[in-house]
């Protein structure tokens, strides 16, 4: 077969199997086009070919997330595609979530371009707009005729590795992905222009709308510190000498888990900071300044705290994205919970 190889994913309804009563259909694959795939194929012409279609019932998909995605990925990979398309799902919620989830998994595991189509209020749109190009469609299958050309056009561009335009130009939902572009004027000149407009009361467009910040409410105080197991966690980069996990000095890609058994005091001989965002001289002279093991051991001996947890966690906060920081915090939190830790002292720099 000629052209760029495409695999298409649809649900039981668009495959013509049935509606809600057939939504428990298990995933299966078919060679070539099924249902709306024929309209896509017509729009592709000779340049791209739908080599296979994977079909799954929406209920089955959403109730078996852990097992169904690997199963579907295996079927898709078997067709050896270069581009993956799901849907369009219009405003069908479970179908939208399935299309988005499969797109995300395909992009991550098969590393090929993925595209789907949804109505912007479909819950799948918000969940997966960062992971896939989601062409904005009408809210029902009656809008298929409008959805197909836009999806086909973008899929062709992705398949041919052509430059992708803005959400407005291509018709996809804004992904909320920050990119770097070259503006006509330098930043300072853009700032002066923006200030003049703001002073005149004219409309202006900020280049970075403020996000909604995640504020954490402090937990209630521990009732009895003398029985509490306390852990230390730091974003100040204190690691065993030599930085065994090679935690990056900025934009850390990981956190480290280190043993404190037998340590009453951290010294320049045993520990150091991997952090590249502050003056490291004083932390390297005495790492307790950032990770206060010495004081915690004293409090432990005096019985002020029950015990110091013998594992500490460290990463580098410098230049690390908020999304990664959240991910590490979640993983560390789970481990500490399982270890029966009652309280955590978080130190930054």
């Amino acid at each position: 077969m000629a052209g760029i190889r495409v695999v298409h994913y649809i649900n039981q309804f668009f495959a013509g199997i049935g509606g809600e009563e057939k939504a428990d259909t298990k995933p299966f694959k078919k060679e070539g086009v099924v249902g709306p795939g024929s309209a896509l194929q017509a729009a592709f012409g000779e340049e791209m070919t739908i080599v296979g279609t994977v079909i799954c019932g929406d209920t089955y998909f959403n109730e078996n997330l852990d097992t169904v995605i690997p199963e579907i990925i295996k079927m898709i990979a078997g067709f050896n595609p270069q581009v993956f398309i799901a849907g369009p799902a219009f405003n069908a919620g479970r179908y939208g979530v399935a299309c988005g989830a499969v797109c995300e998994a395909v992009a991550r595991q098969l590393k090929i371009p993925v595209i789907t189509g949804m109505y912007e209020e479909n819950p799948g749109a918000d969940m997966y707009k960062k992971s896939a190009y989601i062409i904005k469609t009408g809210n029902s299958a009656a809008k298929m005729r409008q959805a197909i050309p836009a999806m086909a056009k973008l899929a062709l561009k992705l398949g041919k590795s052509e430059a992708i335009g803005t959400p407005e130009e291509e018709g996809y939902l804004p992904k909320g992905i920050r990119i770097n572009i070259w503006y006509e004027k330098r930043g300072s000149a853009r700032a002066v222009d923006m200030l003049i407009k703001k002073l005149r009361g004219e409309a202006f467009q900020t280049e970075y709308p403020m996000p909604v910040f995640d504020r954490v409410t402090p937990r209630p105080a521990l009732k009895d510190l003398s029985k509490a197991k306390i852990a230390l966690v730091t974003s100040g980069g204190i690691v065993p000498k030599g930085n065994p996990d090679r935690i990056e000095s900025s934009s850390a890609s990981k956190f480290g888990t280190y043993d404190l058994t037998g340590f009453d005091d951290l010294t320049a001989a045993t520990h150091e900071t991997a952090h590249g965002g502050y003056d490291p001289v004083y932390a390297n002279q005495d790492p307790d300044r950032v990770l206060p093991v010495d004081v915690m051991r004293v409090l432990e001996k005096e019985g002020v705290i029950g015990s110091l947890h013998n594992t500490y966690y460290a990463t580098v906060g410098n230049g690390t994205s908020v999304a990664n920081a959240k991910k590490y915090a979640h993983a560390i939190g789970l481990e500490l919970k399982e270890a029966g830790v009652d309280g955590i002292i978080l130190t930054s720099t």
Binding site: R178, I179, G187, T206, E207, M210, P211, F213, S321, A323
Partner: peptide, 28 residues
């Protein structure tokens, strides 16, 4: 600092009054 994939929040602090911002790009 929006992460290597550009998908993260970009700043470590923010305020509603900051409604006119020029950015010099994603350093990640």
């Amino acid at each position: 600092y929006a992460g290597r994939d550009g998908a993260s929040q970009s700043l470590a602090d923010g305020h509603v009054a900051a409604n006119a911002v020029v950015t010099a790009g994603n350093a990640n």
